[in-house]
Design a binder for these strands. Structure first.
Lengths: 235, 235
DNA sequence: CGACCATTTGATATGGATCAAGCGATGTGG
DNA sequence: CCACATCGCTTGATCCATATCAAATGGTCG
């Protein structure tokens, strides 16, 4: 709630054109996402968010859309009894907050201190109305997000082992170093993403380590030792 | 696999313009979906599918998109060990098969004898490139599907009772008679949609009936007796 | 060093899966 | 029209994966 006022303020102090963003190169199915990103980069304002700071809240008006510049963002929803479901983790280059309705269905928070590009939704929609290329890229981003959530559904019906393995592969594929995962989020976030408890996540990681599928030199630093074994737990 | 050949054939025998489709009026967030539907109605061919017939298979090229005219369609994915996850149920007026990649990530089958409008994806994409209104509606359909899958995720992390209650509410909201649900699918489909077993679904329905939240005069015919009670199991 | 927070590990409880009948509709052939 | 096979659904008994409750360990920062 409070963040919307802050956003509006930030949006109006027209920050100078953004410096080129340095980010790890990520393999993406469609290369043209970069064009879209470059386009909207000039339309918004970069904003810093401290670790755990709210970016927007569930049920707020979805007047902006967002791109991670640095750090990481999680979207989530709270249930009546306090359970929390995380919808996704977003890394530099990822766009989030793009939803069908005019209100957000999830909340968004910074996982670590982060920098986020904030763009007025109406500007993007307006541009898409005039430029077919932008419209197509807007659709691509949304469709890719749809695919991601479908993959998330497939994770949630599996065993704990399979869920954790799937999560690790997903993360590994998004990191520059293919077999080295730097988790930016605590175990509780992983648990809430996978619909498990923190204890089960921890135990499962220990198991995977004992089975020599992974190594865990530090709790937030995981090495993939046997990708085949992890993959076999999927599909 | 086989269906693609059939589709191609159907698509080429240019069936005459479709007769106006009669369908129950459904409450939809965006009324303009109808415009989109009317537009694409003229672009494709109507095809019949028998109960359980495959409409397309996972990993096939996504060269077409589809709209249910009559009956019902389910999308699903099989896991290595034979488990089946249903991604969604589509009713008359619903569009399905619209995916980000160029290959389908789910398979689609008719739940009951159905009639489906089949439209070349490239035609719709081409039209969207020239007509901003169509492009916007294409985006809306995709974004709404994204919201649906997010709702599905929220279901999958709940208890059996909550999942079944959520499913019933979802179905009730899609039926013309708000408190009367005519299930077109067998219990196994419900189970595979909710990530439960058929036995658990059955037991849970019995429980809900004992708690007077619903009545089940026939196994495929459910009456919502206490919507509040069902809703309270959600959120 | 000590306080605090994140993570792991251990012991026990439980919701839903599994295994196994039973039951009620629907349809088919005699 | 009935006998009986089939299929979809329900109900019962038991088991097991993961949750819950509890405590120990480790890591970070003042």
């Amino acid at each position: 709630m409070g963040s919307n006022a802050m956003l509006t303020q930030m949006m109006t102090d027209r920050t100078p054109p953004l410096p080129p963003v340095t980010r790890p190169v990520r393999k993406l199915p469609q290369a043209n996402q970069y064009a879209f990103m470059t386009q909207i980069d000039t339309m918004g304002a970069a904003m810093p968010f401290a670790r755990n700071a709210e970016i927007y809240g569930e049920n707020e008006r979805a007047d902006y859309l967002y791109k991670v510049l640095r750090g990481s963002v999680r979207t989530y929803k709270l249930l009546a009894d306090g359970r929390r479901q995380i919808g996704g983790f977003y890394l530099p280059g990822d766009i989030f907050g793009l939803e069908g309705g005019d209100h957000h269905t999830f909340s968004a928070e910074a996982v670590v201190d982060s920098r986020v590009l904030v763009v007025k939704r109406s500007s993007v929609m307006g541009l898409a109305g005039r430029d077919a290329e932008i419209a197509s890229q807007l659709w691509s981003v949304t469709a890719r997000e749809l695919q991601r959530t479908q993959g998330h559904i497939m994770l949630l019906v599996k065993t704990a082992r399979e869920r954790v393995a799937g999560f690790l592969l997903e993360m590994a594929n998004r990191q520059p170093a293919q077999n080295e995962i730097n988790l930016l989020m605590p175990r509780q976030d992983i648990a809430d993403y996978l619909g498990l408890t923190i204890e089960t996540v921890s135990r499962t990681l220990t198991q995977l380590e004992q089975d020599e599928a992974i190594a865990v030199p530090k709790s937030r630093h995981i090495l993939v030792r046997n990708r085949g074994a992890l993959s076999r737990m999927n599909s």
